[in-house]
Design a protein around this nucleic acid. Structure first.
Lengths: 217, 217
DNA sequence: CAAATAGTGTCTTTGAGACACTATCGT
DNA sequence: ACGATAGTGTCTCAAAGACACTATTTG
């Protein structure tokens, strides 16, 4: 009755590292050196080691690719079409990760040993030079990101430890792709944040108070 | 630099087939015949065939296990701890599926070639005889199910084509594990359903009108 | 008519949305 | 004083929650 197939395949973790840069949503991509899809952009990823959990593999990949630890991440979805990699069967467990752009640039000068770059997500989703099924994966991650912004504090991961409310609002607007009313946004966000005693300064306008994510409870 | 490991593993699809029976949330389990975990209950599953997508494997498993096609299902989460199967590395892509109990019982007389049974989910989550990491998987699925009830029409998959509103309300109450106010429930559900011209009859109380899911925009 | 469940009307509270106004910086 | 952005007060409207009432069947 049963197939004696036991579903053998290579298992990889692909990383969707989103960040906000130049007022746009961007994602970390690498430029492929070898076929298939040489010269195309792809998501960074690693194969899952024999002693690793999936989360550990994701964490290792994030460290390798960004030089950072302690990044927000969560498993996204698993892609496993039989022909998604022309060479052999590869199951890709994708992970969504969020980093503040400052941290990304701070740690890795020139960004990494591998040729990592930040691609504008909107551009990437319309581009032709995306390897494998990675455009589809990115589209799915983009959607999940937009969805979760509405009912989780996920957006705080895209902003420095201390941030102004206008700054946070811009992040929400980019993720949701629509303008928000200032007053309403603040009312909604208020219970999630706490004031610091600091403010911005030096700009040719009123300074903005810095907040941080309210922790605990 | 790179490991020459290529993440080789067996890839399986495990099925969480939820249904509502005897006023309780239940899930389809099989009784294991052989070690490891002989005599324990486990989720039904199949290995992914070399030419199959993950969804196709899930669909095949559902057919084999329930005798049914056209069941609501979606990918849930992928579990891949290195020691989750003591024999070898198995990556489990779990799928959540919902069926009306009538259909389940109708099609498969005695339920299946394999020893399938319906386990009370609450009981199962406290039980000791659950194989592998399946208790954890079920807990995760249970949570997702509760979450999605709130903002998707997912509950309709647990009810026959035509149903009464009190019946649907009971499903919601079971999934959310709390009582709902009748009037409010109906107001909320109203736009999603359309009346039929039929009603229940024969009960020692006022009959209840049958509705069906409003289809299309 | 009593028991039982189906179904409705309506008041209150909460939160989203929209808009207008005031505040504070640098030049 | 002006341009620019930060920050607040308040009205409206829609949805969620709570509760009390009416309706229709069988035995």
């Amino acid at each position: 009755m049963e197939f004696s197939q036991d579903g053998l395949a290579s298992v990889a973790v692909d990383l969707l590292v989103f960040t906000i840069d130049e007022g746009k949503l961007k994602i970390l991509t690498i430029r492929r050196q070898y076929p298939p899809f040489a010269g195309f952009r792809a998501l960074p990823g690693v194969f899952v080691g024999p002693e690793e959990t999936l989360d550990q593999a994701a964490l290792r990949g994030l460290r390798e690719e960004t030089g950072l630890d302690s990044i927000y991440f969560e498993q996204l979805y698993t892609f496993g079409a039989p022909d998604r990699d022309p060479r052999r069967r590869v199951i890709s467990v994708s992970y969504l990760a969020l980093v503040d752009a400052q941290r990304l640039k701070g740690v890795a000068p020139g960004l990494r040993t591998t040729e990592a770059e930040l691609s504008d997500v909107r551009e990437l989703l319309a581009a032709e030079d995306v390897a494998f099924d990675h455009r589809e994966i990115i589209a799915y991650g983009r959607q999940r990101l937009a969805g979760k912004v509405e009912y989780t504090p996920i957006a705080f991961s895209l902003v420095p430890e201390e941030f102004t409310l206008p700054q946070l609002q811009r992040v929400y607007e980019i993720l949701l792709d629509r303008p928000l009313y200032k007053a309403n946004f603040r009312k909604k966000i208020a219970p999630l944040v706490e004031e610091t005693d600091r403010s911005t300064s030096g700009d040719a306008h009123r300074p903005s108070r810095l907040y941080r994510l309210r922790r605990g409870e």
